[in-house]
């Protein structure tokens, strides 16, 4: 039996007059790396906080790993890296992880080994005995990440994990997410950094003004939105309309034609067809619509403000 990692039904949060999250319904499967994308203030953090029981939903229901929101036992299997965090600065990195491990109910040798492993993984072993107050933003982000993974969670929430990280740190986060995926951990990644999401996620949801405007799988993004540009002479109206068999949104501009194809297989077929029609082809290129273009298209140029 597979249980959905995250399941929400019309989850809503109103602050005073303002609806930060407006009836959000979403399902995320176990083992999935899910990107939650939206402009600042879209309600991403609020949504995560409701799932974790930090914020009480105004209405609606939700389940984490099959248990209703607020179930404490489930929180033992969940990891969380908050967005704007400052940790207890007077602790050293090792003590900080020890404390959070103990709060999770871990103890003894197993916890110690886990801490060793994680510190090593995030590259902070030499700083184990240093107080957190001496850490840079990037180093704190790394300790925070280690903290979120202490309990080998089945589900991890990362709220803007790469903000404040340098390229090396970002890469580390990406690698860790890949490893988590291989271990079958479900990762819920909040971000407005599109390239991050594009590289790491299986599926993304676009959220704007507290509503999901679109959910799509990134494999389908790769296919559905391949744009083909052909430079050729001898293209007639008839040939152009014939090409509609393989793609849509065909635009001809002098010698240049662009169209969108559903599948990459269409490209050699189009080429063969054009050659048969006696068209002289000078170049054919394929480009994928990036997540960024899609984001702007979906959320709007105003950034959802």
């Amino acid at each position: 039996m597979t249980v959905t990692a995250i399941d929400t039904d019309q989850l809503r949060k109103v602050y005073g007059e303002f609806a930060a999250v407006k009836g959000l319904t979403l399902q995320v499967s176990q083992g999935e790396v899910f990107g939650f994308l939206g402009p600042n203030g879209a309600g991403k953090t609020t949504f995560i906080k409701m799932l974790l029981g930090l914020v009480k939903p105004t209405s609606g229901r939700g389940w984490l790993l099959g248990a209703p929101l607020g179930d404490r036992a489930v929180l033992a299997r969940v990891g969380f890296l908050p967005e704007h965090f400052r940790f207890q600065e007077w602790l050293t990195a090792g003590e900080f992880l020890q404390l959070h491990g103990e709060l999770l109910g871990l103890e003894g040798k197993a916890l110690k080994m886990r801490i060793d492993g994680l510190l090593d993984r995030v590259g902070l072993t030499p700083f184990r005995k240093k107080q957190l107050r001496t850490f840079s933003k990037g180093m704190l982000q790394r300790v925070g990440l280690a903290q979120a993974l202490l309990n080998h969670p089945a589900l991890v929430f990362l709220d803007e994990p790469t903000s404040g990280l340098d390229p090396v740190g970002r890469r580390l986060v990406r690698e860790i997410i890949q490893e988590l995926r291989e271990e079958g951990t479900c990762v819920f990644l909040n971000s407005h950094l599109l390239s991050e999401i594009e590289i790491t996620c299986d599926r993304v949801a676009f959220i704007k003004h507290g509503e999901v405007v679109r959910v799509l799988s990134l494999d389908s993004l790769a296919d559905a939105h391949a744009q083909v540009t052909i430079c050729a002479t001898g293209l007639t109206e008839a040939i152009l309309s014939d090409m509609a068999r393989w793609g849509r949104d065909i635009h001809a501009n002098g010698q240049e034609v662009t169209l969108f194809v559903e599948k990459d297989d269409a490209i050699p077929e189009i080429t063969r067809y054009l050659v048969e029609q006696g068209v002289d082809i000078y170049s054919i290129s394929r480009s994928r619509q990036s997540l960024e273009e899609l984001f702007i298209e979906t959320v709007g140029k105003d950034g959802g403000l």
Partner: peptide, 14 residues
């Protein structure tokens, strides 16, 4: 205020 409490309350504690 500092958000320190968030990681603590997100643990399986009352």
């Amino acid at each position: 205020n500092s958000g320190t409490i968030q990681t603590i309350v997100a643990k399986p504690l009352r």
